[in-house]
């Protein structure tokens, strides 16, 4: 009786070990699959990032503007003077102009000043993305 019990217990342990190995193998396969998918997604993101950068390059924009959209450089620029007392606000900052068209304040034109560094265009959360793009196991 004791012998039978011992054999049974041994078999149970053996089957449990086999089962654990099977589960381990299954999980490893799943891990490999997910890891491959993660790498594929990262590569896809990088490829798209490159494509966006290429599409945003000046040459590409000019080619599209002139070739596809038929846009042309203006022969000359017309400068419009706003009415007296009005205030023009640009995207990058305020610029107040007088009736004669002269600027009384040129502060805020979009030239970057020392002490400012701009992250890659279009990637608002670049710090998080850049850290995630580092190579992984």
């Amino acid at each position: 009786m004791l012998l039978i019990g011992g054999i049974g217990a041994a078999l149970a342990v053996m089957f449990a070990l086999v089962y654990l190995h099977v589960v381990l193998a299954q999980r490893q396969i799943e891990l490999d699959r997910m890891s491959s998918a993660a790498v594929a997604r990262q590569n896809q993101y990088q490829a798209l990032r490159l494509k966006v950068a290429q599409l945003e390059s000046p040459q590409q924009i000019i080619t599209t503007a002139e070739g596809k959209l038929g846009m042309r450089q203006p022969a000359s620029a017309t400068y419009v003077s706003p009415p007296a007392g009005s205030t023009a606000v640009s995207n990058s900052g305020a610029s107040t102009t007088s009736a004669k068209g002269s600027s009384t304040s040129t502060a805020g034109h979009p030239i970057s000043s020392p002490g400012t560094v701009v992250a890659p265009a279009g990637d608002a959360d670049w710090p998080r993305i850049k850290a995630a793009l580092a190579g992984g196991p």
């Binding site: 590569n43 990088q46 950068a53 945003e56 701009v118 265009a121 190579g135 992984g136």
Partner: peptide, 22 residues
């Protein structure tokens, strides 16, 4: 050996002028 990705070179507006892609 896992290569550390080379940093990008960006223009003043953050547009990539040089970038490394796997």
């Amino acid at each position: 050996t896992l290569a550390g990705m080379r940093g990008s070179i960006l223009d003043a507006n953050g547009n990539e002028l040089a970038m490394s892609i796997p």
